[in-house]
Amino acid sequence: MEAIQETIQVETRDGANAFLPGEVVEGTVSWQLAIPASRAELRLFWYTEGKGDQDLKIVETVAFANPERQDRRGFSVRLPEGPFSFSGKLISLLWALEVVLDPGSRAERLVLTVSPTRREILLPTTSEVSGASPR
């Protein structure tokens, strides 16, 4: 018997990946599994990356009941007002949607940008701050 190639996908409507705070994100998750999932859920969370230990906060979870071996589900989640996506030299904060299928914690993640400009906020470097002209 031919082995099934496992695929897991998270897609937003129109492929958008930059959003305003408070905006509703809609999309679909889909999967094709070799081993059936007993539990499937979508998580909306932010996390940090950089020099220090990672912080992570799940702000919403959407459970998908009775997941089939091959399945496709729609979702709709509202983003909170913050924190915004940003990056400095020492830390970045990123938003993501992740579908997780158990057993095995099989997962797929889609990174989002959340800010009032729909663009990641870039923190100025120390030299940029100190070099700024006084008001």
Partner: peptide
């Protein structure tokens, strides 16, 4: 360089 692009970020 943005922290998330740093190849030596803790997570990597």
């Amino acid at each position: 360089m943005r922290a998330r692009d740093n190849p030596f970020a803790v997570q990597r």
